[in-house]
Design a protein around this nucleic acid. Structure first.
Lengths: 255, 255
DNA sequence: TCTTATTATGTTGTGCACAACATCATGCGA
DNA sequence: TCGCATGATGTTGTGCACAACATAATAAGA
């Protein structure tokens, strides 16, 4: 499935299962495999992962603590919906934290790290040609994780990660609404490509503060575009808020 | 609006119990009622709160996600120990976030808010006379919550709260080691008293950025004092070798 | 006496059955 | 046909018994 599970050998007992299920569900939520507002059944998840409801509930509690889920007694476990206006505060904070990543406890840049940035950059270039929103989100996610490694400040990493996973869904949601606007999507790809290139260059020069500033600017501009697209989308792009599917559809996991 | 932490004393069904147990345990951890490194038995907690282990484990999972506990299979649920060096990163981050609280999404200051600051200030003044470390921590905690209300940025509040609860224990741990140094403790009280006074004044003037800067400076200086006191304590746990208060400048008495 | 294998004890993790709760469907009366 | 009470259905929350696991105590052997 994803290389994250391979990169994280979770082979050991209970803790390994927990991490595997947790990251799997989190990825699915952020890739909109589970649509915002959709319901998750604990028993289905339990069956899928070959365990009982109990360990699944552990994961759900953690995901709920991070604001990605919300369990309601007698109703179900629903994926939190994402609203551009509410996420404005999260973006406001992410902008500042991005700069802090280049500022607090910077790591020493070695050749291996530069290689990883160049690798992402190469894959990003290929992705632009293909132009798949889902693949874009995946590379975006990997690049984010790579970017956070620029600081040795572990709490800053963890918090940035949490906020990232709260906001990253909005882009894919936007993209799914903008079907037919290939030029806009392509524009997003190219902008991200430039961001990766700029930050990679900054890392090559060992200027982590510059990397932080670039990232900060891109996050701010990205949200600006999302907000504009959101306003346009609500006014014109989508005729009505789909009355047929009240968001309770279940997407079987994509292979 | 928000159904979260502070403003909810009573409990409806399941959610109420959860919040009550969660906040109770969190407070106990941060007030060192549960010493760092000590083991918590799920069954004891279950008996105390009149429930089964299941809902208790929910709370423990959340507290573990926040870094206050660590459950190990077959061993126990142990309260995370706190190390000054590890907490340096958290403090580094808290310093920045304190400034952001006065900068991002500032609220409009009304008379009721000023009154709450003045109330805390009055209680702080009385606390200084009494001089109980535990009461100091409690007022410090309340003042922190009040300070976070200066921003309308909910994620920033939540994150600041989380980091605060990760670091606040270190002061009490320090204080418990410094038994016999009443002058040093009193010094801490007076410094906090000044911080409360300064921030209250800034709020009265509606200058939230000033409040943020004051808070930032105090957090940084507080950690500096803690680190120096920690180093002194580890080098010579016995009172004899104290290098003439090189770190803890400023004598009480001028308050 | 020391080392090592084995047992004993205690803790968290898991599975399952049931209770609490919310929602939807049904049926009755007007 | 509409309004409303009542049951049916489905979900999460809880309690309890047991498994998995780690450590301490114990005993055997050299």
């Amino acid at each position: 499935m994803s290389e994250d599970s391979a990169a994280r050998p979770a082979g050991k007992g209970a803790r390994g299962r927990f991490e595997r299920i947790y990251q799997t569900l989190r990825t699915r939520i952020c890739l909109l495999d589970y649509a915002p507002g959709s319901r998750l059944r604990e028993e289905d998840l339990a069956d899928e992962f070959g365990v009982s409801r109990t360990p699944v509930r552990r994961v759900l509690v953690k995901l709920e603590a991070e604001g990605l889920l919300r369990s309601v007694h007698g109703v179900g476990t629903i994926v939190t919906d994402i609203d551009v206006n509410e996420l404005a505060q999260v973006y406001e904070l992410r902008v500042e934290l991005a700069e802090l990543i280049g500022k607090l406890s910077p790591i020493v840049v070695d050749e291996a790290l530069v290689a990883r940035f160049r690798d992402i950059k190469a894959r990003c270039d290929r992705m632009v040609a293909a132009g798949d929103p889902r693949e874009f989100s995946q590379i975006n996610m990997e690049f984010f994780h790579l970017f956070t490694t620029l600081t040795a400040n572990e709490p800053l990493r963890a918090i940035s990660e949490r906020l990232y996973y709260q906001t990253t869904r909005i882009w894919l949601k936007m993209a799914s609404r903008l079907k037919g606007y290939e030029t806009l999507l392509y524009n997003e790809f190219v902008i991200f490509q430039r961001e990766v290139a700029d930050i990679t260059e900054a890392v090559e020069h060992g200027d982590l503060m510059a990397a932080g500033h670039v990232r900060r600017a891109h996050i701010a501009m990205s949200f600006s575009r999302i907000r504009q697209a959101s306003g346009a989308g609500e006014n014109a792009a989508v005729p009505k808020a789909d009355p047929s599917g009240r968001g309770l559809r279940r997407n079987p996991g994509a292979g």
